[in-house]
Nucleic acid binder design. Sequence first.
DNA 1: ATATACCCTACTTAATTACTGGGGATTGTG
DNA 2: CACAATCCCCAGTAATTAAGTAGGGTATAT
Lengths: 147, 147
Amino acid sequence: MILSTKGRYGLKAVFELSMNYGLGPVSLRKISGKYSISESYLEQLFAKLRKEGYIETVRGPRGGYLLAMEPEKITVGMILRALEGDITTSECISKDVCSREAICATRVIFEKIENSISDVIDNITLADMQVKKNILMEETDEQETIS
Amino acid sequence: MILSTKGRYGLKAVFELSMNYGLGPVSLRKISGKYSISESYLEQLFAKLRKEGYIETVRGPRGGYLLAMEPEKITVGMILRALEGDITTSECISKDVCSREAICATRVIFEKIENSISDVIDNITLADMQVKKNILMEETDEQETIS
DNA sequence: ATATACCCTACTTAATTACTGGGGATTGTG
DNA sequence: CACAATCCCCAGTAATTAAGTAGGGTATAT
């Protein structure tokens, strides 16, 4: 499993905010309830996202969280990296061997993997996710729910 | 860090075998010494690869490990999956919500990530790695060792 | 005033990773 | 044939990370 619950829960939750963009704040309780995620755990994830400037908060009754910018401006990569840390595959096992061999054959592979992941996550915004979702839901409607 | 030492050590070690393809077995001690990997740990990784049929062993003095097939026939993906298990990004957080929503917007993302990783690792063989390495080493030779 | 929300830090539990150790089986070599 | 080199296998352990809990504090709409 490449992503931990941090990234998975976090992306779901942010997507939820994005679906409510422009409609005021959404409370932790609502989101954690909907996805059965521990409220306190999710709070910690949101704290990271807030520090990175992707979400904002409104305190007090009827308060909650909201996106700090348009869904078009936030990529999946921003969220995943904020929560999971940098998505790297490897550091060199032994710098010694690496420098002796001038170039590490395996490092090339790992860099390719990293780049292909970045290609995906940096090129999908929250807005894209919403579009994608709508398209897919129409498709399933037409076909009477496959799965 | 997406890959653990299992995949990283393992791929290095198998690559080492591939460089010795056709020249007889290579002992654990040599490989673990070269890369400063615990002999016993590497042994466990090799055990998995042997069970999957990628490497073979010769016991007794002058024995060791060797590829069970040509480097052209073994992909990076085979090795990484044997060692790390399936490279999946996620399971659904809550089946309930997923089915209620008909389709999970985040799942689409995770599948894309998985596919792009597979694209990379299933299309590089050990033989490719060797070629790549040679090309890169020539480049560095010409330029008087950059790093 | 008070209930509803976020804010923050520390602790705990569970799982996984990354080893370590040791006894056993095979086999080429002197 | 003895013996050292090598793989084989299983069990244990230490370290790290992930995942979740707990609780007291602050802001604010009503």
